[in-house]
Write a protein that binds this DNA or RNA. Sequence first.
DNA 1: GTACCTGCAAACGTTTTGCTGATCA
DNA 2: TGATCAGCAAAACGTTTGCAGGTAC
Lengths: 162, 162
Amino acid sequence: MKSQSAEESRIAQLCVEHGLKMTGQRRVIARVLSDADDHPDVEELYRRAAMLDSRISVATVYRTVRLLEEKGILERRDFGGGRARYEATEGGKHHYHLIDVDNGKVIEFEDPEHEELMRRVAERLGFDFVSMRLELFGKKRAVAQKETKAAAPKGRRKGETA
Amino acid sequence: MKSQSAEESRIAQLCVEHGLKMTGQRRVIARVLSDADDHPDVEELYRRAAMLDSRISVATVYRTVRLLEEKGILERRDFGGGRARYEATEGGKHHYHLIDVDNGKVIEFEDPEHEELMRRVAERLGFDFVSMRLELFGKKRAVAQKETKAAAPKGRRKGETA
DNA sequence: GTACCTGCAAACGTTTTGCTGATCA
DNA sequence: TGATCAGCAAAACGTTTGCAGGTAC
């Protein structure tokens, strides 16, 4: 969580700058997104938004999140599990994600040389680099092997491309 | 395409080695998979299988493909577009994928140092490397700018995480 | 005032599943 | 023969959309 104040949230400001009509619902969703420092899926965003204002429907969350993605304010991620997850776009330095296969938790990390490396690969193949996707899946290194199979993410159905 | 002969396909052999019951349907699907050198989705696998033996249902393709993935014989990929795609697991050297954003075509490439790099990243974060996902999205470098917007993959709805 | 927004519920496309009968080992 | 499998159709899943009102600007 980051601001919590009564003033317009960071993402709400971005919405205004992009010429979006600021409805009550959008303001709430924007606040939820601004305050999130994880990677919530739509259902989770909906849950959080509904706590601030119960007159919000999932459809609106879907519509808003998609709109913001098109505007470049949000980025969609796919960490397996079959549902899209979102995080605010950060200007400048990229980061990547390491997903703990035992509990679905996401750790962010940086690797500055990496994108440059991939740009060169694309170029070598005769392509202009557009974007890339990199996810690392790992298991917490066993120190005392605690909670090995606790809270596994519901049987791991859709997604989860190795 | 690779074998086409009447004998048991490579993947069928793997199935037997893994103790799977070899039904007619599985043999057909195994052959289709063995012969594929691209990354077909389930619908495409079904289409190809049905050409060899029309008494096959999509459900069986789904079940088989999932079974083979669990056995480690197949690997599931997600290139955006909302459907899973499959390719046979290759022992040893990995390869990665560059997706042409203009037409959805997939180019494979290798980058031997890359996995080692990622193993080190995981280790540094206190994790054992399990697997990784790397996809590069690119645009064919414009030489004479031919077919820039030809055959774009249906509006790019689901998937397509940047 | 009007273009754009929302909620609802129905529709969507992909994937899974319950059931019954068939098949492999 | 017994465990596993196939087909079918129905359901589940996340997501999108048509429509009839509302709301921001």
